[in-house]
């Protein structure tokens, strides 16, 4: 019998758009709702999170600096648009990581064919992939020389191949540098549940590494 995931109830926030932690972010997000200084507040939020976001995407893409930069930019764009949905339960940086994560996944899930310059995939409303073929994908790279990292790359692919729940937890923890309580808040479970997921993921990864070799 599996232990049940603990139940986190809906909560009433004191000020629903203000995060519980990260007082600096709290103030900035308050400014976002205010009548003035929102642009400055947004810029400050960017300044305090962009490196972390980039670093996470850099690792997810396996070291593709340009792609990581593009995805970072896209993540922020989505974040502004999705601000109304940010209830402040978790930190802004945590929520932003989620967006960056899914941005990457969307990118990775695109059909992996070389896109000729003349016919970008404009029909689905997505940005056409960059002209230089740089679609990140979790499958083995064509040129093995690029995967000189060896263990790291195999590990990266193994992580990306994890089941969704574990994958998010692992990447958030190790690449997004999010602390466990923040991940727990984001996922709506307890810290113990997150740690259990991490345990499970480590076991799976160790096996998966072997399979990929």
């Amino acid at each position: 019998m599996n232990a049940l995931e603990p139940i986190a109830r809906t909560q009433t926030m004191a000020r629903p758009w203000l995060p519980n932690r990260g007082r600096h972010e709290k103030r900035l997000l308050a400014a976002l709702s205010g009548a003035s200084g929102e642009r400055r507040a947004a810029e400050e939020l960017v300044e305090s999170t962009w490196r972390q976001t980039y670093a996470a995407l850099f690792r997810m893409t396996g070291g593709d600096a340009e792609l990581a930069a593009d995805l970072t930019q896209e993540a922020y764009r989505k974040a502004w648009a999705a601000l109304p949905g940010f209830d402040g339960r978790a930190r802004f940086s945590t929520w932003l990581y989620r967006i960056a994560y899914t941005t990457f996944l969307n990118h990775a899930r695109r059909p992996r064919r070389v896109v000729p310059l003349e016919s970008p995939l404009a029909a689905d409303g997505e940005d056409p992939p960059p002209a230089e073929e740089a679609i990140a994908d979790p499958a083995p790279p064509v040129d093995e020389a690029l995967a000189a990292q060896g263990t790291h790359d195999r590990l990266r692919r193994a992580v990306l191949a994890l089941p969704e729940e574990l994958r998010f937890t692992v990447t958030a923890r190790f690449w997004g540098d999010l602390p466990v309580p923040e991940i727990a808040t984001q996922e709506g479970v307890t810290g113990a549940a997150i740690r259990k997921r991490l345990k499970k993921a480590m076991a799976l990864l160790a096996v998966g590494l072997e399979e990929q070799s």
Partner: peptide, 30 residues
């Protein structure tokens, strides 16, 4: 190994690009 995966400094102009993307009218959170 997961924790050791290398990262890198972001390109310097990325910050400016991101800031340039901030919309004029920001939606209100929450």
């Amino acid at each position: 190994h997961l924790a050791d995966m290398p990262s890198a400094e972001p390109p310097a102009e990325l910050l400016a690009r991101i800031k340039a993307d901030i919309p004029e009218e920001l939606p209100v959170p929450g």
